[in-house]
């Protein structure tokens, strides 16, 4: 079964970094990561009628005020800074087969 990942942006009133670029960076990293694991994944803007393995909330500042209670997700990961990455997802491989960290 494909891993379903949702992305939710904060509203962007005074972002300290480019959230769109960050989303692309995260998508690229996850593509590499899941490809190495030979695991299919889908990433999309969060919808209320979906259930996500991971919901990544990209906030433009440390407040990260985006609301996300309306979404169903096993795990919520918050990005609050340009250097943040959804590293929690990397533990996915350990859950699956216990292999060493790839990224």
């Amino acid at each position: 079964m494909d891993i379903l990942i949702g992305i939710k942006f904060c509203g962007g009133c005074n972002p300290r970094y480019d959230r769109k670029l960050k989303k692309e960076e995260i998508e690229n990293k996850l593509f590499t990561f899941f490809k190495a694991l030979k695991t299919q994944f889908n990433i999309e803007h969060a919808r209320e009628d979906a259930h996500y393995k991971y919901l990544i909330v990209i906030g433009g500042c440390s407040t990260c005020c985006a609301s996300y209670d309306q979404y169903k997700a096993d795990k919520v990961i918050k990005i609050k800074d340009i250097s943040d990455m959804p590293i929690e997802i990397y533990s996915f491989q350990e859950e699956q087969n216990g292999v060493e960290e790839i990224l």
Binding site: K8, F9, C10, G11, G12, K20, H45, C65, S67
Partner: peptide, 11 residues
């Protein structure tokens, strides 16, 4: 726009 919808919309 999903990039702004959290502020621009509500239930």
């Amino acid at each position: 726009d999903p990039e702004y919808a959290d502020l621009m919309t509500a239930k």
